[in-house]
C-alpha cells in the first residue's frame, strides 16, 4: 500500500493557503514586535545570561534523566504484571485491575502529583518529591502499558497457546517464550509512545520541590529576567524527544503497513 497522494486540494488553493499564512505571520511580527534579529538574539538566545548557569541546568537535566529512567523501567514492569494478571480472567483480580485502570486513565497527572505530595503529608505520609513523581507517573503510565500488552498478547492466535500447552509447557513458560516475545514486537509503538509520555511528564514535577530541568530553567529565568534559560531547556527537551517522536512515528507507520 503506497502513501496516499490524491490531489484533493488543487495547487492554487495550496498556494493561496501558504501565501495567507506568510502574510499573517509577517503582519503579526510587524504589528506586535520589531523584526530585529539582534534584539531577538538578545532576548531569547542571550549567552551572557547563561554564563555560569549551565551547571544548574545540567544538574536539572540529570535529575530529569533519573526520574525518566526509573519511571520507564518500573512502569513497564508494572504494566506487564497488570497485563499478565488481566489475562488470567480471574473475576476478583479483573475487577480490581479495571478499577485501577479507569481511575488512572481519568486522573490528570498534575492533580495526582499535588494530592500525593501536598495532600498526603496531612495524613503524615511524606514522600519525597522524587518518590511522589515516580509513584504517580509509574502508576498512571503502567495502566496504559498494561492495556497495550494485554491487547498484544490477546491478538496472538489462540492455537499457539494451545500448541504450547500441548507440548507440555506451563502457562508461565508459554507467556515467557511464546506470548510476550511476540506481543512485545506488536506493542512496541504504543510502548514507545508511553515512554515518551513519561519523559514529558517529568516536567510536571517542577511543581514539587525538585529541581529538574524545567524548574532549573525557571529559576534562572526569573532571576535574570530573561527567557533564554527557558529556551535552552526547551532545546534540551526537544533534543531527546524529537528523535524519539520520529522513531515512534516510524514504528507506527511500519506497523500499519505490515497489517
Amino acid at each position: 500500500m503506497s502513501i496516499h497522494t490524491n490531489r484533493f486540494t488543487p495547487l492554487w488553493v495550496q498556494g493561496l493557503a501558504a501565501l495567507g499564512v506568510l502574510l499573517i505571520a509577517g503582519w503579526a511580527l510587524q504589528h506586535y514586535g520589531d523584526i530585529d534579529l539582534e534584539r531577538i538574539r538578545h532576548i531569547f538566545f542571550n549567552m551572557e545570561v547563561m554564563e555560569g548557569q549551565w551547571g544548574l541546568l545540567m544538574s536539572g537535566l540529570w535529575i530529569t534523566t533519573e526520574l525518566a529512567v526509573v519511571s520507564i523501567i518500573l512502569s513497564t514492569i508494572l504494566g506487564l504484571l497488570v497485563a499478565i494478571f488481566r489475562i488470567k480472567e480471574n473475576k476478583i483480580i479483573n475487577v480490581l485491575l479495571v478499577g485501577y485502570l479507569e481511575f488512572c486513565r481519568a486522573t490528570p497527572i498534575l492533580v495526582a502529583l499535588i494530592v500525593v505530595y501536598f495532600g498526603l503529608p496531612f495524613l503524615n505520609i511524606r514522600f519525597s518529591a522524587f518518590e511522589s513523581g515516580v509513584i504517580v507517573i509509574v502508576f498512571v503510565h503502567a495502566a496504559y502499558i498494561g492495556e497495550a500488552f494485554r491487547s498484544g498478547i490477546m491478538a496472538i492466535h489462540r492455537t499457539q497457546t494451545e500448541a504450547s500447552y500441548a507440548l507440555g509447557m506451563t502457562p508461565r513458560q508459554t507467556l515467557q517464550y511464546i506470548l510476550v516475545p511476540q506481543a512485545f514486537r506488536m506493542v512496541l509503538p504504543s510502548l514507545a509512545n508511553q515512554w515518551i509520555g513519561v519523559i514529558k511528564d517529568t516536567a510536571v514535577t517542577s511543581l514539587l520541590a525538585i529541581t529538574e530541568l524545567l524548574k532549573a530553567a525557571q529559576i534562572i529565568a526569573t532571576w535574570k529576567a530573561n527567557p533564554t534559560p527557558l529556551v535552552m531547556s526547551t532545546f534540551l527537551y526537544l533534543l531527546i524527544l524529537i528523535p524519539l517522536t520520529i522513531l515512534t512515528m516510524k514504528l507506527e507507520r511500519n506497523q500499519k503497513l505490515t497489517r
Binding site: 492455537t159 499457539q160 494451545e162 500448541a163 500447552y165 507440548l167 507440555g168 509447557m169 511464546i178 514486537r185
Partner: peptide, 29 residues
Amino acid sequence: SEIRRDMGMVFQNFGLFPHLTAQENVMLA
C-alpha cells in the same frame, strides 16, 4: 503440564511459533 509431555498434538492450522525458526520450534519444548 506434566501429563501433556507424554501426549503430542498436531493442529489443523499448524500452530507453529512464528518468531522461531523450524529448528527452534522443534527444540524449544
